[in-house]
Design a protein around this nucleic acid. Structure first.
Lengths: 259, 259
DNA sequence: AAGTGGTCTAGACCACCAT
DNA sequence: TGGTGGTCTAGACCACTTA
């Protein structure tokens, strides 16, 4: 009897899998699991497709379909002739997928992050709701100003649960050699894979006006971002105030997934 | 000799096709062309996959890969057991892909569009640049107020080239039975397939304050949208001013293409 | 029952990269 | 030269819709 004639083939992978779950979805879940548990590290190559097909006892086409979706979600990166790699957080990836501010002429600059304060604190109701934790739970609250072309443009407040980032310190945060999301990934094993953002306009209060060097009641773009890791688990809540006098927020929907 | 052994197979579809273009990309191009020329109308079913495979003389897997991408771009819609359909612009599609305003509690309301003015005009530099036409070219300029829960929340100015929308009148625009993009599609054969938006915060001037029933210098979210049809051809430029006191702009990146 | 898309398998060759 | 992903083919069965 050949494999595809075996009615119990779905059960080969995981005993608890639903009967009607497509095989490639099961494979995708197992691949994601293997990444999130750290067997395959960010930046490393994963086994060749034929090896995965052998390991999971499925056809190579099924592996390809699972990998296709993970590539579409920017979790894996294919490189013809070289292999398939676990996406790592570097400057390029950050700028492309998580930094949506461009100057009015359309050019994209890399921000310089300056830490203003770092404190242990507790989550308020909104923060707790977005982070899936209880109000009053312990968090770190970090405030930064982001400079573009040496001018302060963005005032960020980052809120992250202390349970997810044990023993994080101001020094570790400030002296990181790379991006913030790279720090999450390399030091705490937390990979941010996507984000959801909500935007509104508001007026600058005294504090944000001082930090951004603008007048009180000047218009600011407020962005509330929830950053998520695998399986849509929230890991960071961030509130950004952006001076959009010379910069804009860019949103190009429905381009993702196409080619 | 079997098909896949034929070195000239790429040439079967279109004489001008590049030698190294993957077959499925060629098929995708031909499918798009067939839709945009009107052979397959919006809402109609297209031929079954095995018929397309026969028509283009390729394997059904190649058809599926081409259709996969078009489904990912929301140009085609697959329905198991029924067939594959050309996406039509209805309220649901509009709300899902082109209307990004949600109330603060996350719920999504359908806006009521009230036309304020309709005029023939000429494109300024910015409009011309976004629409790919010459400054001074003839356009229609239409202003609307969008109401959510009976309150005026959004003040829209739509700019469209007269050449693309011949003989459009205020009455045709105002008395359309469906959405604006449905009107473009059904009356002018123009299908909006995606959009790119840029956002910034600004203060309400006298006119927008009056229209939206707010104070002058209240904060407003300004959205500049370019709507595109097949092959990224721009067809509409729209400037929206949104009162974000009780509503927000929602941006959920990287979810597209996944499942 | 007939027709459609959805999944899965199997195997070939091509394009690209490292050595 | 050997290994990797990228493309293309071919054909089977499954799930769903419609009549």
């Amino acid at each position: 009897m050949r494999k595809w004639e075996d009615p119990a083939r779905h059960q080969k992978l995981v005993a608890g899998a639903a009967l009607d779950t497509p095989l490639y979805k099961e494979v995708k879940r197992l691949l994601t699991e293997t990444i999130s548990t750290g067997e395959w590290k960010p930046g490393a190559v994963i086994p060749a497709e034929w090896k995965l097909a052998e390991r999971f006892d499925v056809a190579i086409g099924t592996i390809r379909k699972a990998v296709d979706e993970l590539v579409g979600e920017h979790i894996l990166i294919r490189q013809q002739g070289r292999g398939t790699f676990v996406a790592a957080h570097n400057r390029d990836r950050l700028m492309f997928h998580f930094f949506h501010i461009v100057s009015s002429d359309g050019s994209k600059l890399t921000p310089e992050v300056v830490m203003l304060s770092f404190a242990g604190s507790i989550a308020d109701d909104e923060e707790a709701a977005h982070l899936g934790i209880k109000p009053g739970a312990k968090v770190y609250r970090i405030r930064n100003v982001l400079k573009l072309a040496d001018a302060p443009i963005i005032f960020d407040t980052i809120v992250i649960p202390q349970t997810l980032f044990p023993k994080l310190t101001a020094a570790k945060f400030r002296d990181r050699p790379n991006t913030i999301y790279h720090l999450y990934q390399s030091s705490f094993g937390i990979t941010v894979v996507r984000s959801a953002e909500r935007l509104r306009a508001r007026l600058a209060d005294a504090e944000s006006a001082a930090i951004l060097g603008i007048k009180q009641k000047a218009p600011l773009l407020e962005i509330r971002r929830v950053a998520l890791t695998f399986n849509d688990v929230p890991v960071e809540f961030r509130r950004s105030l952006v001076n959009t006098e010379n910069y804009e927020y860019f949103s190009d929907l429905a381009k993702t997934g196409a080619s």
